[in-house]
Amino acid sequence: MSKEFVCIVCPNSCRLTVSEKDDEITVTGNDCKRGIDHGISEYKNPLRMITSTVAILGGTLPRLPVIGTGEIPKTRMNDCLDEIYGVSVSAPIKRGEIIIQNIKDTGVDIVASRSMNKKER
């Protein structure tokens, strides 16, 4: 079995082919060593940063942006987003405050990516 990826480690954009045979993974098409690690990672368990918003009550804006403390498996993205979409928080919030701990057991926390004050009335 083999898969193709465009390498994003540097602007060269090598077209990587990652093949698996007898439990051995090989990467071809890479111009440099870094492409091998990237290829294997994309093949085995591609990771993505998660960023989104949650509803916030009483804040200066109705949405609070959030970010993961690390990357999550690409395949878990929708699962995690579903949980994020169901959450709402109250102002004030400080950047870095944990909104969801260890989201969907990925080991990643979802934190506020900005501070938000209470809206003055």
Partner: peptide, 19 residues
């Protein structure tokens, strides 16, 4: 800009625009 990718040169990490 709630997505990440900001500040690699300055902070050495991929922050969100808001961060």
């Amino acid at each position: 800009c709630i997505h990440d990718g900001f500040g690699i040169h300055r902070f050495g990490k991929r922050l969100s625009g808001t961060e």
